[in-house]
Simulated assay, not measured.
Amino acid sequence: MAKTINFLMILLVFSRLQAQEKVLFLVAGQSNAVGVGDSAQSAKCMLETAFEYRFSNDTLLHLQDPVGANELKFGAATTGSIGPAFAKTYAELSTKQVVIVSAARSGASCHQKAELDNYGTWDDTGRLQLFENAVLKTQNAIEKTGVKLSGIIWLQGERDANAMNAQQLTAQEYEAALTKVIQRFRDKFGEKVGFYIVQTGYYTGHPQSGFEQVRLAQKNVTQRLKNTHVVYENTHLFKEKNWLYDVIHYNQTALNDIGEAAAKYILTHPIK
């Protein structure tokens, strides 16, 4: 009798988890979106609360670092990312299951003028264009889960800031390119898809001017476009906090803080 009760309880818990509402988020951008942290220090998500979508075998996996995969020109975290901290916080506060689609590439630019070698760009022209692959991966995740895309978490701007410092790109061109990529995503997934920006930090030992221009452009875009937000702005303080992995990449303490803060912000700023 006790074994039967235990089995029924397991079935009940499983059925409740299966019935839980899912939310789907795309994490996109360049290397800090990929993640250069430490999986040993990243957040740990409870089973059946957070998932990662993998395109190569069309599966949902338990979300844990290293998040991402070397597929469709995108990369995997080496070895920690914002994904687990974001999903863990979001799931705990909302009681919803979180599905992460990782589509980021180290060194990728927003504007094609800033594209470097074969690092790629999110623009609609350039040598290695990333946008359509991100759309493909996200569309497959939507088909797999049966839920719409809730939002895009964007960590990108370092490549364009370096191009500004080299006088290859203007702040106006970058802002226009960022506006364009947001609209292109919304053309594919709907006007009410949230776009959530983690402001770009600094490159230690390099001029801050280009990075400040990127940060300002990111803020400007959120003031013009509906459902577009800066969800984290303190990346420029990471050197003082000792939260850098190297001269430009965020360590796992920083990535965890970004993930947790972004989840809390998104939950308290619903789409209008």
Rank of each mutant, 00 (worst) to 15 (best):
Q213C: 02
V23C: 08
A85P: 09
I82N: 09
K272G: 13
Q218G: 10
N57G: 00
D123Q: 05
L116Y: 13
I197N: 08
K264A: 00
I153D: 00
D124T: 14
H229I: 00
M9I: 13
L47M: 07
D123C: 09
L24R: 01
K241N: 09
D187Q: 15
G107C: 04
F195E: 03
R159P: 00
I100Q: 04
G210I: 03
S39M: 13
D58E: 14
V198N: 02
I182Y: 07
V98E: 04
T235S: 13
N220A: 13
Q168T: 03
D124F: 09
K22L: 14
Q20Y: 09
V247I: 11
D123W: 03
V34A: 10
W243E: 05
G210R: 08
I182M: 08
G75W: 13
W122Q: 11
I182G: 06
V36K: 12
Q41L: 15
V99G: 06
N133C: 05
K73T: 08
A85L: 03
T138M: 07
K88R: 14
F51S: 01
V198A: 09
K192M: 11
N251F: 09
G68M: 10
Q112G: 00
A141W: 04
T145I: 06
Q252P: 06
L116S: 08
I5G: 00
F55E: 07
I266L: 10
L216N: 10
Q20I: 02
R186N: 07
N140F: 04
K239G: 00
W154T: 06
A263G: 11
I197A: 10
T170Y: 10
D246E: 03
Y232F: 15
A108D: 08
T228Y: 03
